[in-house]
Design a protein around this nucleic acid. Structure first.
Length: 501
RNA sequence: GCGGGCAUAGUUUAGUGGUAAAACCCCAGCCUUCCAAGCUGGUGUCCUCGGUUCGAUCCCGAGUGCCCGCACCA
């Protein structure tokens, strides 16, 4: 599945047809970058989140959970760098349609003894000063200008005056005046807290859940009986006003994150080991929800592309039909965030290590995962069209652990009351443990195919052997389409083993 | 944000300046002893608003959404 644009379209259609994902506010024409999850979608999401919470929080001794609010004191976002970092002014070239970050676009006036030969413009690069001087020299030669070239001072485009900007040529086409004024793109959604709407009431919808963890670090240390190393986990909605939401639910403006901040001692030699541990832990977890290793990849961020506070960042990627993209980022963030919050809040956030008898600001490893991306990955990995006895069937091979519906219960035919009653009784028994469905309409084969398409791993059929013979029940496996017979108790034991491994 | 394409039933698509079709799906009923059998019936503001026109789903304009490319993704 390298580049097959129709595959993702088929998956989008299936998601709508079977009630996994709907476009938000569809009856009003939709709204770009927002989605709703239907009856099956909400089950799948819950199962993904529950599996994560179960494995990352409840089954570990070194993790605790948190649920912080979406709206926080706006100072949080000043401390975290999001208020500034989110508003990179952008410049467009009207001719080439290429967009630049204004602070990465450098310009200088080329002057010879007081006379301007015109402006030059180039992109931020290691060699930009040398390049600029070479260009200036050649401009001087072409202009056949005598005299001494003044030294070239490159300045970011957004620091020039408006008149100066109008003299700068586009780096793509060389045309003066093709560049637009810098425009702000702030990715945080703003709102107002309180009845008065003024500058002092502005607040933001969180663009990540992580900051709620950092701001509660002291509370948890003071109350939670935790010892470093330990982690705080949170699942919650986050909002980013993306310029261009794309690829279905892969990049949307409202999404849900599952984030961990794992606090470790500040020793220089410790973090690599913890970082690697988390990458392995997370890869294994993806396997446990049915994302096979041949769909997964690891992408190490090159050091020059890292944010200035990050020591390392490794993405776990998934091979989507539209390309291989990030599912989860596992970053080593040092103590940047706690340090920022300590400075901005004026509160001491140091941890007292009882064993070492010292106080320090712990460093963190941050495994940060998108629920919606995981959801899409699970559906893409599960989506299959195969042939059974010459007939095509669409089947979602969900791992039983995340499958929205665990089993379908069927009487072989519906016009025999004994079959129907027995099937209903079993249905009500299974319903107490799992999300199961009952279906008696149409031929049995049609019912099997119908549950295949929504990824139900098991079909359970009450037939004449059940009511007239040894009482055994047929279990039909979604992936192999093979049937096995079980007693009712064996059946429940078998299902439990598969669904909760 | 820019450029290009697209918008008809739940889905995939046909079609027309004069009251809109097919297949599949779905729902109800009949039938049915093991992988989409069959029969009957049911389910539509042709994306929205405005314009041209006697009349617009079709032509024009704007908006919205989707897809592709560019750029962006702290």
């Amino acid at each position: 599945m390298v580049k097959e644009t129709s595959l993702i379209d088929e998956i989008v259609s299936l998601c709508k047809r079977r009630g996994f994902v709907f476009q938000s506010s569809e009856i009003y024409g939709g709204i770009n970058g927002f989605f709703d999850y239907g009856p099956l979608g909400v089950e799948l999401r819950r199962n993904i989140k529950d599996a994560w919470w179960e494995d990352m929080v409840r089954k570990r001794d070194d993790m605790v959970g948190l649920d912080s609010g979406i709206i926080m004191n706006p100072k949080v976002w000043q401390a975290s760098g999001h208020v500034d970092g989110f508003s990179d002014p952008m410049v467009d070239c009207r001719e080439s349609k290429i967009r630049y970050r204004a602070d990465q676009l450098l310009a200088a006036d080329v002057r010879v003894e007081g006379d301007s030969l015109g402006w030059i413009c180039l992109l931020e690069a290691v060699s930009m000063q040398d390049d600029a001087e070479k260009i200036a020299e050649s401009m001087k030669r072409k202009a056949s200008k005598q005299g001494k070239l003044e030294s070239i001072t490159l300045r970011p485009f957004d620091e020039l005056s408006s008149e100066e900007r109008s003299l700068v040529p586009s780096p793509a086409t060389g045309t003066v005046g093709a560049l637009t004024e810098p425009r702000d793109f702030n990715m945080m959604f703003e709102t107002n807290v309180g009845a008065l709407r003024d500058a002092s009431s502005v607040a933001y919808l969180r663009p990540e859940t992580a900051q709620g963890i950092f701001t509660n670090f002291k509370n948890i240390v003071d109350t939670g009986r935790v010892k470093i190393p330990f982690g705080i986990a949170q699942i919650g909605k986050a909002f980013r006003n993306e310029i261009t939401p794309r690829n279905f639910i892969f990049r949307s403006r409202e999404f849900e994150q599952m984030e961990i901040e794992y606090f470790i001692p500040p020793d220089e030699d410790l973090w690599t080991q913890h970082h690697r541990n988390w990458i392995e832990t997370r890869l294994a977890w993806f396997g446990s929800i049915g994302l096979k290793s041949d769909f997964l990849g690891e992408e190490v961020h090159p050091s020059e592309k890292l944010a200035h506070y990050a020591k390392a960042c490794t993405d776990i990627t998934f091979k989507f039909p539209f390309g291989e993209h990030e599912l989860e980022g596992i970053a080593a963030r040092g103590n940047f965030d706690l340090n920022q919050h300590q400075q901005h809040s004026g509160k001491n956030l140091e941890f007292f290590d009882e064993i070492r008898k010292e106080r320090y600001l712990p460093h963190v490893i941050e495994p940060s995962l998108g629920v919606d991306r995981t959801f899409l990955a699970v559906i893409c990995a599960a989506y299959n069209i195969d042939e059974v006895e010459g007939e095509k069937r669409t089947v979602l091979r969900f791992h039983p652990r995340v499958a929205p519906i665990k089993a379908g219960v069927f009487p072989l035919v519906k016009n025999k009351p004994e079959l129907v009653d027995r099937a209903r009784k079993l249905y009500y028994r299974l319903q107490r443990k799992w999300n199961v469905i009952y279906d008696q309409s149409g031929a049995i084969g049609r019912r099997y195919r119908r549950i295949d398409e929504v990824g139900v791993p098991f079909g359970i059929t009450i037939d004449f052997e059940t009511i007239e013979g040894d009482g055994s029940i047929t279990l039909r496996d979604r992936d192999s389409t093979k049937q096995q017979r079980f007693s009712e108790d064996e059946l429940i034991y078998y299902l439990d083993d598969k669904i909760n491994p």
